[in-house]
Amino acid sequence: MVVPVVAADTALRRDGDTSAGGRSASLSWRRIRAWRGIVLGLTGIFFLLPLYAALRFALENNLGHLTLAAFSAIPHTTGFIPAFLLSVRLAAVTMAITMALIVPTTIYVHVKYPKLLVAFDAITFLPVGIPPIVLIIGVLQSAPFVLKSTPYLLALEYVILAMPFAYRSLDAGLRAIELKTLVDASRSLGGSWLATLWRVIVPNLRSAFLSAMILTLALVFGEFTMASLDLYTTLPVWVVNTDSITAHVSVAVSFLSLALTWVLLLALSSVDRRRFARRALIVEGT
């Protein structure tokens, strides 16, 4: 958005437009740019200031000296490793179940019953409005007995919580491709439903998958209420519990958790971008 503004501004000056209208337009552009800068700056401060404060707090010791002690103490702090591993396991299971349930369902509705998409859209929003305790009771009532005394019960709850985000990512991906035509083309060429799904649809939804998985991962690594109510010490629960004992370490973990999500997001998107770039290079070489 900035480029055209600069270009227009430069063009005005290059043309040597010194008329009253020209000066007025130039002044107007400068004002717009200034406002943009102010809004961007305030937004940046809003998001970055707490992060800076957290990082500063984690890096300072009680004497006000900068040190990495809080970060280096993380692995040795009681309960961290089990909590971290539990969150990792829950994230993996949640992502697997979410993908297995949401992907075929979303594709099926898009292909076979596109008129139901509005209703489907509304249904997937329900977890956002339903209180966690109601979801927990619902899952407890319907979950298989063998899961009821295991932390994997949480994974089922997380699947419901992740549904609005995962569905929207996939829905956006499916709307971006000519799904019906691609399915018809594959079917007319002899492709079974499974082959069509695996070889035609899924490869064209890679970005949507990545987005859905990252959102699910971020949710699992940030969810506190359900885990706390279910009495399982996941990473967020551990962070809250540890905060009263070693606040510096607790904040360091929170910061790292956020940074990890960001790094993953960047890594996955850059891998995706590199894949397309490599494909283009292969074509250039032929």
Partner: peptide, 21 residues
């Protein structure tokens, strides 16, 4: 079913699979 009819089809909208050359 359509996949067993042995009928090739060309569509109005470009229907090539984007993930394949």
């Amino acid at each position: 079913p359509s996949q067993d009819r042995d009928m090739g089809m060309v569509f109005q909208s470009y229907s090539l699979f984007p993930n394949m050359d």
